[in-house]
Protein backbone atom coordinates (compact mmCIF):
# COMPACT_ATOMS: atom_id res chain seq x y z
CA UNK A 1 0.00 0.00 0.00
CA UNK A 2 1.32 3.44 -0.77
CA UNK A 3 1.50 5.91 2.05
CA UNK A 4 0.15 9.41 1.84
CA UNK A 5 0.50 12.67 3.69
CA UNK A 6 -2.90 14.28 3.89
CA UNK A 7 -3.18 17.77 5.32
CA UNK A 8 -6.72 19.00 6.01
CA UNK A 9 -7.59 22.58 6.92
CA UNK A 10 -4.42 22.96 8.99
CA UNK A 11 -4.12 26.08 11.13
CA UNK A 12 -0.86 26.73 12.98
CA UNK A 13 0.30 29.49 15.31
CA UNK A 14 3.68 30.47 16.67
CA UNK A 15 2.92 31.80 20.11
CA UNK A 16 -0.29 33.80 19.59
CA UNK A 17 0.46 34.61 15.98
CA UNK A 18 -1.52 32.60 13.40
CA UNK A 19 0.74 31.66 10.48
CA UNK A 20 -1.04 28.87 8.64
CA UNK A 21 -4.68 29.62 7.95
CA UNK A 22 -6.17 26.46 6.53
CA UNK A 23 -3.82 24.32 4.45
CA UNK A 24 -5.14 21.44 2.37
CA UNK A 25 -2.62 19.26 0.61
CA UNK A 26 -2.31 15.61 -0.41
CA UNK A 27 1.11 14.12 -1.16
CA UNK A 28 1.22 10.46 -2.06
CA UNK A 29 4.23 8.19 -2.10
CA UNK A 30 5.95 8.36 -5.47
CA UNK A 31 4.71 11.86 -6.25
CA UNK A 32 6.80 15.01 -6.40
CA UNK A 33 5.13 18.21 -5.28
CA UNK A 34 6.63 21.68 -5.23
CA UNK A 35 5.41 24.24 -2.73
CA UNK A 36 6.36 27.72 -3.85
CA UNK A 37 5.70 31.15 -2.49
CA UNK A 38 7.28 34.41 -1.40
CA UNK A 39 9.11 34.88 1.90
CA UNK A 40 6.83 34.88 4.93
CA UNK A 41 4.04 32.97 3.24
CA UNK A 42 4.34 30.12 5.78
CA UNK A 43 6.19 27.44 3.81
CA UNK A 44 8.80 26.72 6.43
CA UNK A 45 6.16 26.86 9.17
CA UNK A 46 4.39 24.04 7.39
CA UNK A 47 7.64 22.05 7.18
CA UNK A 48 8.47 22.50 10.87
CA UNK A 49 4.90 21.74 11.91
CA UNK A 50 4.89 18.50 9.99
CA UNK A 51 8.24 17.51 11.51
CA UNK A 52 6.85 18.15 15.00
CA UNK A 53 8.81 21.16 16.22
CA UNK A 54 7.36 22.06 19.64
CA UNK A 55 7.23 25.81 18.91
CA UNK A 56 4.67 25.35 16.11
CA UNK A 57 1.25 24.77 17.59
CA UNK A 58 -1.57 23.38 15.43
CA UNK A 59 -4.80 25.12 16.42
CA UNK A 60 -7.20 23.46 13.98
CA UNK A 61 -7.33 20.84 11.26
CA UNK A 62 -5.62 17.50 10.99
CA UNK A 63 -2.77 15.69 9.28
CA UNK A 64 -2.97 12.03 8.44
CA UNK A 65 0.24 10.26 7.54
CA UNK A 66 0.17 6.65 6.42
CA UNK A 67 -3.11 6.19 8.26
CA UNK A 68 -1.85 7.75 11.51
CA UNK A 69 -2.81 11.02 13.16
CA UNK A 70 0.52 12.76 12.60
CA UNK A 71 -0.07 15.64 15.01
CA UNK A 72 -0.45 13.13 17.81
CA UNK A 73 3.07 11.81 17.34
CA UNK A 74 6.35 13.11 18.78
CA UNK A 75 8.99 14.26 16.33
CA UNK A 76 10.96 11.01 16.65
CA UNK A 77 7.84 8.90 16.10
CA UNK A 78 7.03 10.85 12.93
CA UNK A 79 10.50 10.14 11.60
CA UNK A 80 10.26 6.46 12.38
CA UNK A 81 6.85 6.36 10.74
CA UNK A 82 8.57 7.39 7.50
CA UNK A 83 8.41 11.18 7.30
CA UNK A 84 11.62 13.13 6.71
CA UNK A 85 12.42 16.82 6.80
CA UNK A 86 15.55 18.07 5.06
CA UNK A 87 16.22 21.23 7.03
CA UNK A 88 16.87 24.61 5.50
CA UNK A 89 19.24 25.29 8.39
CA UNK A 90 20.60 21.98 9.68
CA UNK A 91 21.65 22.25 13.32
CA UNK A 92 25.25 21.64 14.39
CA UNK A 93 25.63 19.10 17.18
CA UNK A 94 29.18 19.37 18.51
CA UNK A 95 30.88 16.23 19.73
CA UNK A 96 28.70 13.79 17.75
CA UNK A 97 30.13 12.56 14.49
CA UNK A 98 27.92 12.28 11.42
CA UNK A 99 28.52 8.53 11.38
CA UNK A 100 27.62 8.03 15.02
CA UNK A 101 24.50 10.12 14.62
CA UNK A 102 23.34 8.27 11.55
CA UNK A 103 23.95 4.90 13.16
CA UNK A 104 21.95 6.00 16.19
CA UNK A 105 19.11 7.14 13.93
CA UNK A 106 19.05 3.76 12.16
CA UNK A 107 19.29 1.87 15.43
CA UNK A 108 16.38 3.86 16.82
CA UNK A 109 14.28 2.21 14.11
CA UNK A 110 15.41 -1.29 15.09
CA UNK A 111 14.89 -0.55 18.76
CA UNK A 112 11.40 0.83 18.24
CA UNK A 113 10.50 -2.60 16.81
CA UNK A 114 12.44 -4.58 19.39
CA UNK A 115 13.77 -2.85 22.51
CA UNK A 116 16.48 -5.51 22.86
CA UNK A 117 17.75 -5.07 19.32
CA UNK A 118 21.45 -4.34 19.00
CA UNK A 119 20.69 -2.42 15.83
CA UNK A 120 22.58 -2.49 12.58
CA UNK A 121 25.93 -4.31 12.64
CA UNK A 122 29.02 -2.16 12.24
CA UNK A 123 30.11 -3.76 8.94
CA UNK A 124 26.60 -3.41 7.49
CA UNK A 125 26.49 0.21 8.59
CA UNK A 126 29.91 0.90 7.07
CA UNK A 127 28.80 -0.57 3.75
CA UNK A 128 25.61 1.47 3.78
CA UNK A 129 27.46 4.67 4.62
CA UNK A 130 30.17 4.15 2.01
CA UNK A 131 27.62 3.46 -0.69
CA UNK A 132 25.34 6.39 0.12
CA UNK A 133 28.21 8.83 0.50
CA UNK A 134 29.72 7.81 -2.82
CA UNK A 135 26.38 8.41 -4.51
CA UNK A 136 26.40 11.98 -3.21
CA UNK A 137 30.05 12.67 -4.07
CA UNK A 138 30.91 12.98 -0.39
CA UNK A 139 34.42 12.47 0.94
CA UNK A 140 34.28 9.43 3.29
CA UNK A 141 36.26 11.45 5.85
CA UNK A 142 33.14 13.51 6.31
CA UNK A 143 31.54 10.75 8.35
CA UNK A 144 34.09 11.33 11.09
CA UNK A 145 33.35 15.03 11.44
CA UNK A 146 31.09 16.45 14.10
CA UNK A 147 27.55 16.74 12.79
CA UNK A 148 27.14 19.93 10.73
CA UNK A 149 29.83 21.68 12.77
CA UNK A 150 31.89 23.88 10.48
CA UNK A 151 30.16 22.38 7.43
CA UNK A 152 29.77 24.72 4.44
CA UNK A 153 26.25 25.37 3.16
CA UNK A 154 26.69 22.76 0.44
CA UNK A 155 28.13 20.21 2.86
CA UNK A 156 25.19 20.64 5.21
CA UNK A 157 22.67 20.05 2.43
CA UNK A 158 24.54 17.00 1.16
CA UNK A 159 24.57 15.65 4.70
CA UNK A 160 20.79 16.15 4.83
CA UNK A 161 20.30 14.17 1.64
CA UNK A 162 22.70 11.51 2.95
CA UNK A 163 20.47 11.13 5.98
CA UNK A 164 17.44 10.94 3.73
CA UNK A 165 19.08 8.22 1.64
CA UNK A 166 20.10 6.23 4.71
CA UNK A 167 16.75 6.46 6.49
CA UNK A 168 14.62 5.73 3.40
CA UNK A 169 11.53 7.75 4.29
CA UNK A 170 8.19 7.22 2.60
CA UNK A 171 7.74 10.94 2.17
CA UNK A 172 10.37 13.67 2.41
CA UNK A 173 9.96 17.40 2.79
CA UNK A 174 12.84 19.47 1.44
CA UNK A 175 12.75 22.89 3.02
CA UNK A 176 14.55 25.32 0.72
CA UNK A 177 17.29 22.81 0.15
CA UNK A 178 18.36 24.92 -2.81
CA UNK A 179 19.11 28.05 -0.80
CA UNK A 180 22.75 28.99 -0.67
CA UNK A 181 23.90 26.24 -3.04
CA UNK A 182 26.05 26.64 -6.12
CA UNK A 183 24.83 24.94 -9.24
CA UNK A 184 26.97 21.79 -8.83
CA UNK A 185 25.91 21.21 -5.25
CA UNK A 186 22.31 21.91 -6.20
CA UNK A 187 22.44 19.30 -8.94
CA UNK A 188 23.96 16.60 -6.68
CA UNK A 189 21.48 17.27 -3.91
CA UNK A 190 18.37 17.51 -6.10
CA UNK A 191 19.32 14.48 -8.18
CA UNK A 192 19.99 12.58 -4.98
CA UNK A 193 16.40 13.16 -3.91
CA UNK A 194 15.07 12.46 -7.43
CA UNK A 195 16.89 9.11 -7.43
CA UNK A 196 15.26 8.16 -4.15
CA UNK A 197 11.92 9.06 -5.64
CA UNK A 198 12.55 6.73 -8.57
CA UNK A 199 14.33 3.93 -6.71
CA UNK A 200 12.20 3.67 -3.58
CA UNK A 201 9.03 5.46 -4.60
CA UNK A 202 9.67 8.21 -2.04
CA UNK A 203 7.15 11.02 -2.14
CA UNK A 204 8.68 14.50 -2.10
CA UNK A 205 7.44 17.92 -1.12
CA UNK A 206 9.98 20.44 -2.40
CA UNK A 207 9.68 23.82 -0.73
CA UNK A 208 11.37 26.56 -2.72
CA UNK A 209 11.29 30.12 -3.96
CA UNK A 210 12.83 29.29 -7.25
CA UNK A 211 12.24 27.21 -10.30
CA UNK A 212 15.96 26.30 -10.53
CA UNK A 213 15.89 23.16 -8.31
CA UNK A 214 12.88 21.87 -10.24
CA UNK A 215 15.13 21.33 -13.29
CA UNK A 216 16.69 18.42 -11.43
CA UNK A 217 13.75 17.12 -9.46
CA UNK A 218 10.76 17.49 -11.74
CA UNK A 219 7.48 18.02 -9.92
CA UNK A 220 4.17 16.47 -10.86
CA UNK A 221 2.29 19.19 -8.99
CA UNK A 222 2.99 22.80 -8.09
CA UNK A 223 1.29 24.68 -5.25
CA UNK A 224 1.59 28.37 -4.57
CA UNK A 225 1.37 29.57 -1.01
CA UNK A 226 0.49 33.08 0.07
CA UNK A 227 -0.24 34.40 3.53
CA UNK A 228 -0.71 30.99 5.16
CA UNK A 229 -2.87 29.45 2.46
CA UNK A 230 -2.34 27.45 -0.71
CA UNK A 231 -3.91 29.75 -3.28
CA UNK A 232 -3.17 28.00 -6.52
CA UNK A 233 -2.31 24.45 -7.55
CA UNK A 234 -1.44 23.08 -10.95
CA UNK A 235 1.10 21.27 -13.09
CA UNK A 236 4.76 22.05 -13.87
CA UNK A 237 3.77 24.98 -16.10
CA UNK A 238 2.90 26.96 -12.98
CA UNK A 239 6.55 27.05 -11.93
CA UNK A 240 7.56 28.46 -15.29
CA UNK A 241 4.94 31.15 -14.97
CA UNK A 242 6.39 32.14 -11.58
CA UNK A 243 9.88 32.11 -13.05
CA UNK A 244 8.77 34.50 -15.80
CA UNK A 245 6.48 36.83 -13.90
CA UNK A 246 7.34 36.49 -10.21
CA UNK A 247 4.74 36.46 -7.46
CA UNK A 248 3.11 39.83 -8.16
CA UNK A 249 0.24 38.37 -10.13
CA UNK A 250 -0.43 35.96 -7.28
CA UNK A 251 -0.62 38.80 -4.81
CA UNK A 252 -2.88 40.81 -7.08
CA UNK A 253 -5.14 37.89 -7.78
CA UNK A 254 -5.46 36.74 -4.17
CA UNK A 255 -5.38 40.13 -2.50
CA UNK A 256 -2.42 39.84 -0.18
CA UNK A 257 -1.72 42.91 1.87
CA UNK A 258 1.97 42.03 2.02
CA UNK A 259 4.67 44.15 0.47
CA UNK A 260 5.70 43.15 -3.01
Amino acid sequence: MTAALEIKNLHVSIGDLPILKGIDLLVKQGEIHALMGPNGSGKSTLAYTLAGHPNYVPTAGEVVFDGKDLLDLEADERSRAGLFLAFQYPVAVPGITLAKFLRQAINARYQAEDPDSKGISIPAFRRLLTEKMAALDMDPKFAGRYLNEGFSGGEKKRAEILQMAALEPKIAIMDETDSGLDIDALRVVAEGAANLNRASNMGVLVITHYQRILNYIKPDFIHIMLDGRIVESGGPELALKLEDSGYDWVREKYGSTEEA
Partner: peptide, 11 residues
Protein backbone atom coordinates in the same frame (compact mmCIF):
# COMPACT_ATOMS: atom_id res chain seq x y z
CA UNK B 1 19.86 20.22 18.82
CA UNK B 2 17.47 17.89 20.62
CA UNK B 3 14.74 18.51 18.02
CA UNK B 4 17.16 17.92 15.16
CA UNK B 5 18.20 14.55 16.58
CA UNK B 6 14.57 13.63 17.29
CA UNK B 7 13.60 14.56 13.74
CA UNK B 8 15.74 11.62 12.63
CA UNK B 9 13.84 9.15 14.80
CA UNK B 10 16.03 9.30 17.89
CA UNK B 11 13.89 9.27 21.07
Amino acid sequence: EIFYLMSRGIP
